[in-house]
């Protein structure tokens, strides 16, 4: 069952490549939150209840509800144009994300000697690289945060793959999640929205030589 959920997660990454509206991105992030909820529920059912509740709370309340609502609020408040405005044509985005998944697959097979669930590794690395790719190729500051959240989801998946031995590590990752992605980035997004008329990276290119 986990495998199916992970495949669904990877499909959502591909879909992110062709999505051209910000609301679609937000929906994808919410869906990823639900998928992560499913995966963590199945994988971590044996650990102690408080930890489990914390993680499930984090995936459902935080990733699925709070972040999408917050991003929607940011977009509305700052009158951000609804299109994602990538630098690359969408077709190339899909091809590159597919190549990323292919590369992660090859990587997961080259790496030997350690027992890891390869599916988790594959999806986590793909999410990391796709997130970076989205950050690089999208024009808006909000999409940068979305790319960052995709990376976070990848990290979450990877920390789930350590299984129920490493609950400390999983919790650390989640704390990082809550701390950085919302507290700091959110504050700055609103500041950027207040300072500049449009939240494009074009406005953030004054510092150069």
């Amino acid at each position: 069952m986990t495998n199916i959920l992970l495949i669904a997660f990877a499909i959502s990454l591909i879909y992110m490549g062709i999505a051209n509206r910000l609301s679609t991105y937000i929906n994808i992030l919410a869906v990823q939150g639900i998928i992560l909820f499913g995966v963590s529920f199945i994988e971590l059912i044996q650990i102690n209840t408080i930890n489990l509740i914390f993680i499930l709370f984090e995936t459902i309340v935080f990733k699925t509800i709070a972040i999408p609502l917050f991003l929607n609020y940011v977009i509305k408040k700052n009158n951000i144009v609804r299109e994602a405005e990538p630098f690359l044509p969408d077709f190339l985005s899909v091809v590159i994300i597919t190549c990323i998944i292919l590369g992660s697959f090859i990587l997961s097979n080259i790496i030997t000697g350690v027992h890891i669930q390869k599916m988790f590794f594959l999806v986590a690395i793909s999410a990391l690289l796709s997130g970076l790719f989205i950050i690089i190729t999208r024009k808006k500051v909000v999409t940068h945060i979305m790319g960052y959240l995709v990376i976070e989801n990848g990290v979450f998946i990877l920390s789930l793959s350590t299984g129920n031995k490493m609950t400390m590590l999983v919790n650390a990752g989640i704390t990082l999640d809550i701390f950085v992605s919302v507290l700091v980035l959110g504050v700055f997004v609103n500041r950027i929205g207040n300072t500049f008329e449009e939240m494009n990276v074009d406005n953030l290119a004054n510092l150069k030589d």
């Binding site: 495998n3 495949i7 990877a10 499909i11 591909i14 879909y15 490549g17 062709i18 044509p89 969408d90 077709f91 985005s93 899909v94 091809v95 994300i97 597919t98 998944i101 292919l102 697959f105 390869k118 599916m119 594959l122």
Partner: peptide
């Protein structure tokens, strides 16, 4: 928008292929 949509299907079937390989 059509080419990227159709290519997405290829990507998804590629994912299925990987999943089968891994399983």
């Amino acid at each position: 928008h059509n080419p990227q949509f159709i290519f997405t299907i290829t990507s998804i079937s590629l994912l299925i292929f990987f999943a089968v390989l891994l399983i």
